[in-house]
Design a binder for these strands. Structure first.
Length: 586
RNA sequence: GCCCCCAUCGUCUAGUGGCCUAGGACACCACCCUUUCAAGGUGGCGGCACGGGUUCGAAUCCCGUUGGGGGUGCCA
C-alpha cells in the first residue's frame, strides 16, 4: 500500500536482506550507486530520476533495512512502487500516516501544497469555511481561525465561505452580520473579494437539517427516545454514573411529542484524518447516542453543522481544537448521510496566562476592543498568525501577502498558545514606526480630540510616532500642546523643581528666550540658548532641560523638548515658564 | 470518572536522528547612543518536564510517568 501526500512524501520502505546486499553502494530505488544500508550520514544528494530527493536508512537488523525517502510528485508514488516491483520481487511500502503521533504528522509536512490531496475525493477548488456564532463581539481566537482559513482559501485558489451559526437567535440579525462583516473586513477579509462567499445563516437551513434527520431516522441510523434529561441522570446514577447508555435504542419509538431523535452510534472506530494532527482514532464505544433533534423539534449543532457544510460544498473544515471531540460524531453523520467527508484541520486554541482557553468572561478577547485601543489591523493580523504557526524560519514580522503564500496547516503547532498582549504591543509599535509620517497622522487621527488643530499636531507627529505602542496613547503624549495650561504632575514637579538650580536656571532661560525673535523661535535656537545659559550651572543638557520641560509640559517625560517648544511658540512657552517660576517662589 | 489532544527559555517559536555548546522574537538586565522617554545598536540572563528504552549517536523515534489543555449537553 502506498499513499502519497502532496508534492513531497516521505515513507518507509522495508525490504529483506535477501533482496539487497547490506552495505552495498547500490541505491535500491534506482539501481544506482547510492546509500549503504545503515549509512545514515549520506542522506543528501542530487534528485534522482525517479524523483527521489533523499533517502536515508533508518534502522536495520539482520533481516530488514528501513528506508525513508522523499519523493517527487511528478513521478508519483505509484510509479515508484511499480519501479520497486520491477527491481525486486517483494516490497513493503507504507506511509507513515498511520497513527496520531507527532512523528507521523511531521512526515506529512513536506506536502505543504496539498495535504492529503491525493487521498481525498475533492478535485475541485477547495472550499473553506468560517462559522462563527454571533455573540455580540468578535473573539480574537475566531479572528485567527478566520485568518487561517482565509490564507488557505486564497493561496489554494478556493473559497472562504462565511456562515453564521445563529441557531439560538435572540438579537437582531442585521446587527450581528454587520458586526462580523466589519470585523472580518478590518482583518482584511473583505466581503468584496472574489474569494469571499456568504454570509449564509445557519437558521435558513433549518428545513434541510430536519430533512436530513428524517432521512437518518428512516434509514435506521437514528431513533426516537422519550427520556428526559432528569430521567437519564437518575438512571445513570442508579447504574453507576455512566451517561445516557442507549436506553431507548431498541424501543422502536416513533416520532412524538417530548421525544428527541438520537443517532445510533455504530460499533467500531472512527478515524479522523486531520491536516494538523495526523490521524486521530476514536472508539465509537465511548461515544453516546447523541441527540440530533431536540424534543421541541429543533436540530442540534452537530447535525446542523454537517448538513450546512454539505449544502455549501465545504471541502475543508479548519477550526479550533475544541471541536476535535465533536468530529467523530460529525464524521459518522456525514458517512451515514452518504456524503463526502471533508478534510479536517483542528488548530490549537488560544489561552490566557493561566493556560485556560480564552474566555469572554475573564479575558480581553474582543477584537473590537483592540481596534478601539489603536492596534493596527496589520499588526494584529501578523501577531495572530504567529500564534501556533511559523513559516519555519526566524522571521516573525512579515506582510500578509507573504504569510498568505507561506501558510499551511502542516506548519501549525499542536499546543495552545498564550495570547500575549505585550508582544502584540511590540508588533504594533513596529507597525506604527513603519508607517510614513503622513500615513501615521492619518492613522492616529481618530484618536485625537476633534477640536485639536491638525496642523499643529502634524508638526509634532514624527516625534511621537516612535514612542507609541498603541495609537490611543498619542493624545496623552502631546496634550500640553493643545491645552491652555499644562497638567502638572505633582511627583514630576516636586522632583525637578526642588533642585537648587531650578529657580536660577528658569530665570536665565526666561531672560534668554524673551530675547529670541518669535519668528525664529525654533528648536535649534531654543536648544542653543538653553545650552548657553546653563553653562554657569555646570549641568548636562539632560538635567538642565528638566525644569523647562516640567514648566512647559507638566511632566518629566514627553516628546523632544525643543521641538515641542517650537510648536508651542514663543509667547506660550514664555508664559508657562514665567508661571512656573512664580509658583516656584511660593 | 471516561475519551481525545499536547509538552523546547517566563511567553511565542526554530528544530523532521549527527549541522545543537539548542537558533530567533517578546519580556527582563547591562552598556552604547542621547534632549527626558522612546526608538536604534551591542551584549547578557534564561529552555529540551521526568524516567526508561531504540541507536555508534536522541530535543528529535518508542513506552511509561507527571503536568497542561479540550471534550464528555435537548450549547455552539
Amino acid at each position: 500500500m502506498l499513499g502519497v501526500v502532496g508534492q513531497l512524501a516521505h515513507f518507509d520502505v522495508e525490504f529483506t536482506t535477501d533482496e539487497i546486499v547490506l552495505g552495498s553502494d547500490t541505491d535500491p530505488f534506482t539501481g544506482r550507486h547510492r546509500h549503504c544500508a545503515g549509512d545514515g550520514a549520506s542522506h543528501s544528494g542530487e534528485p534522482h530520476d525517479v524523483g527521489i530527493h533523499a533517502a536515508r536508512s533508518k534502522t536495520q537488523d539482520d533481516r530488514h533495512v528501513r528506508y525513508e525517502a522523499i519523493v517527487d510528485a511528478e513521478h508519483g508514488g505509484a510509479g515508484l512502487a511499480a519501479r520497486h516491483r520491477s527491481v525486486t520481487a517483494v516490497w513493503l511500502v507504507e506511509t507513515h500516516v498511520a497513527k496520531s503521533t507527532r512523528g507521523d504528522r511531521r512526515r506529512v509536512r513536506g506536502g505543504r501544497d496539498s495535504v492529503a490531496s491525493m487521498d481525498t475525493p475533492h478535485d475541485e477548488a477547495p472550499r473553506f469555511r468560517f462559522a462563527p456564532s454571533p455573540t455580540g463581539f468578535f473573539h480574537v481566537g475566531g479572528a485567527r481561525t478566520a485568518l487561517f482559513n482565509w490564507a488557505l482559501a486564497r493561496r489554494r485558489g478556493g473559497r472562504f465561505v462565511l456562515r453564521i451559526e445563529d441557531t439560538d437567535a435572540e438579537r437582531n440579525r442585521d446587527e450581528w452580520i454587520d458586526g462580523i462583516i466589519d470585523a472580518l473586513a478590518w482583518l482584511g477579509i473583505s466581503a468584496d473579494d472574489p474569494t469571499f462567499e456568504g454570509p449564509y445563516m445557519q437558521s435558513d437551513n433549518r428545513q434541510a437539517h430536519i430533512d436530513a434527520a428524517t432521512r437518518l431516522y428512516e434509514s435506521g441510523h437514528a431513533y426516537y427516545c422519550d427520556l428526559t434529561p432528569d430521567q437519564i441522570a437518575e438512571r445513570a446514577a442508579a447504574d453507576g454514573g455512566a451517561g445516557y447508555g442507549g436506553w431507548s435504542r431498541d424501543a422502536g419509538l416513533g416520532p412524538g411529542p417530548d421525544r428527541v431523535l438520537r443517532f445510533r452510534v455504530p460499533d467500531g472506530t472512527t478515524v479522523v484524518s486531520d491536516g494538523v494532527r495526523g490521524e486521530v482514532e476514536f472508539d465509537n464505544g465511548v461515544i453516546e447516542d447523541f441527540v440530533l433533534v431536540r424534543s421541541d423539534g429543533s436540530p442540534v449543532f452537530n447535525l446542523a453543522n454537517v448538513v450546512d457544510d454539505h449544502l455549501m460544498g465545504i471541502t475543508d473544515v479548519v477550526r479550533a481544537e475544541e471541536h476535535l471531540s465533536n468530529t467523530p460524531k460529525q464524521q459518522m453523520l456525514v458517512t451515514a448521510l452518504g456524503w463526502a467527508v471533508p478534510r479536517w484541520g483542528h488548530v490549537p486554541v488560544l489561552v490566557n496566562e493561566q493556560r485556560k482557553k480564552l474566555s469572554k468572561r475573564r479575558d480581553r478577547v474582543a477584537l473590537e476592543q483592540y481596534r478601539d485601543e489603536g492596534y493596527l489591523a496589520d499588526a494584529m493580523v501578523n501577531y495572530l498568525m504567529t500564534l501556533g504557526w511559523s513559516a519555519g524560519d526566524d522571521v516573525e514580522i512579515r506582510p500578509w501577502a507573504e504569510i498568505e503564500q507561506l501558510f499551511d496547516l502542516g506548519g501549525v503547532n499542536l499546543s495552545p498558545a498564550f495570547f500575549d498582549v505585550r508582544k502584540l504591543g511590540a508588533f504594533n509599535g513596529e507597525y506604527i514606526r513603519a508607517l510614513d509620517t503622513v500615513a501615521f497622522i492619518d492613522a492616529v487621527d481618530p484618536w485625537l480630540p476633534t477640536q485639536w488643530d491638525r496642523m499643529r499636531f502634524s508638526r509634532i507627529a514624527e516625534h511621537i510616532q516612535p514612542r507609541l505602542t498603541t495609537l490611543s496613547e498619542a493624545a496623552g503624549v502631546v496634550d500640553f500642546l493643545f491645552s491652555d495650561e499644562p497638567v502638572r504632575d505633582a511627583p514630576s514637579w516636586d522632583k525637578v523643581m526642588s533642585a537648587d538650580y531650578a529657580a536660577g536656571l528658569l530665570d536665565a532661560v526666561i531672560e534668554a528666550y524673551a530675547t529670541i525673535d518669535p519668528a525664529g523661535f525654533d528648536a535649534a535656537t531654543t536648544k542653543a540658548e538653553l545650552e548657553r545659559v546653563m553653562e554657569p550651572f555646570s549641568l548636562k543638557l539632560g538635567k538642565a532641560q528638566a525644569p523647562v520641560r516640567v514648566a512647559v509640559t507638566g511632566r518629566t517625560v514627553g516628546p523632544p523638548l525643543f521641538e515641542s517648544l517650537e510648536v508651542l511658540g514663543s509667547e506660550e512657552t514664555l508664559r508657562r515658564l514665567r508661571a512656573a517660576r512664580t509658583d516656584l517662589v511660593s
